[in-house]
Amino acid sequence: MNEDMQELERRSRAAFDESVESLDAATRSRLARARAKALEGLKGRRTVGPVLWIPAGAAAAAIVAAMLWQREEGGPATARNEATIGAFEDLDLMAQGDDFDMLAEDPGFYAWTDEQLSDGVG
């Protein structure tokens, strides 16, 4: 690149920097809001990670096993179909990450309910 082009390069960059510095307050404010909005995406996002898929998979396997066992036991065809549909609906619900968040965030509550139920039965 010749000297003229290098000079143009330098001056155009300086002119651009100047234009960035002189951006009006309203635009700056809108950009800051846009940034805040983008960062909001970090909060409240729930995606099921690999660790949480393990209990999900185990629960799903248990439901499938229960369905098969029920099928072995026999019973009216309609009842079996309803049970199957219900089981698949459960699978759908379990596939949602939030349900597992609840389990992970409050294990004490589930221990307590388990205890209460055991007391009631015994």
Binding site: F16, V20, T27, A38, L42
Partner: peptide
């Protein structure tokens, strides 16, 4: 870090 990065880049990116 993301906030800092975006704050540093947003005006130039806009222009």
């Amino acid at each position: 870090a993301l906030d800092r990065f975006l704050a540093g880049i947003e005006r130039r990116a806009f222009r």
